[in-house]
Simulated assay, not measured.
Amino acid sequence: MPGSTSVHSRRRRGAPAAAGAVLASFALVVALPGTANAAQEDAGPGARDSQRAAPTKPGEASLGAGVRMYEGDSTDGAPPPITNRAATVKGVDVSSHQGNVNWKALSDRGVRWAYVKATESTSYKNPYFTQQYNGSYNRGMIRGAYHFALPNKSSGKTQANYFAKNGGGWSKDGKTLPGVLDIEYNPYGSTCYGLSKSAMVKWIRDFTRTYKSRTGRDAVIYTNTNWWRQCTGNNGGFGKTNPLWIARYASSPGALPNGWGFHTFWQYTSSGPVVGDHNVFNGAYNRLKVLANGG
């Protein structure tokens, strides 16, 4: 798909069916209990529609907005196949679309971690950030923040600094996850934001290096394999330093981007219970705590 394609001319496509190699110690296809119908009935007001809708103005993009526009979400909240529930740690991600989140309802469902949108580009801060970030923490969840990148607006360094100053920091309290760089299909315009593959890699490196210098942590990279191949040339230079959060709305994470032997998080649906976006951590809860503590 060429980088200049208009948002309005794109057609949704099913998620790719290829399976990816996953590091043996993390090679788990995980699942959540429940059914698709139950997930739909329990979704909060407008949660499902707001997650699927295309952003209409800057600031409205959420984690996976571009992925849903390009590839769709055919899961309808259905959980992946169960193989090893002991290594399944449920999580969610939220943005202003969810407003004030019912964290008790999520906690009662066994959700143990959450990521909250903090910023987008250098002109947007989530107005619900405090309720969402502190609310999840107060329910005993491990939480973190994410930044929706717009590489065509300013440098990686500029956006990393903006993120770190506005909710994307990190503290060694055992309850704070490293910040996330959300880099995916552009929901507002050309697929690769008008950047060449080499320029995109440079932008991502600029962001991640700046974020680490500000916080001492390597940022998690949230992305989609198809986008990564198209817009970075399937660059393999980040897998040794930056944990991978893979976006794929299907029964498995599928093939991973070059450089990563395993994924750390997997966003598998945008139409799950209460808030829409549901995820799993690829490991046991004690490993999630290690990640929060800087391990």
Rank of each mutant, 00 (worst) to 15 (best):
A118D: 03
L181M: 07
Y185A: 11
R12A: 07
R48I: 12
S50I: 09
R109L: 11
A15K: 03
G99L: 01
Q267G: 08
V22E: 15
W245R: 01
Q230V: 11
R52M: 13
Y70C: 11
K90W: 15
P58W: 09
G189I: 02
A53I: 12
S171F: 12
N84D: 11
P187E: 05
W113K: 00
L256G: 03
G194Y: 03
T119G: 03
H147L: 03
A54H: 06
T232V: 01
T208L: 15
R229P: 15
G272M: 01
E120P: 04
N37P: 10
Q40A: 14
P253H: 01
S190W: 05
S4I: 09
A145F: 04
W170C: 04
K165W: 11
Q230S: 13
A160H: 01
L291K: 08
L177Q: 04
V274I: 03
N84T: 11
V220A: 08
V280E: 15
V89W: 12
N293A: 10
Q230I: 15
D108K: 02
G168Q: 04
D76A: 12
Y249Q: 03
G239A: 09
N37K: 15
Q132V: 13
W228M: 03
G99I: 11
A114L: 02
S270T: 09
G261S: 13
G295S: 04
Q131S: 07
A219V: 07
P2I: 14
A86M: 11
S154F: 09
R139T: 10
G283T: 01
T88E: 05
G77T: 01
V180A: 01
Y133G: 04
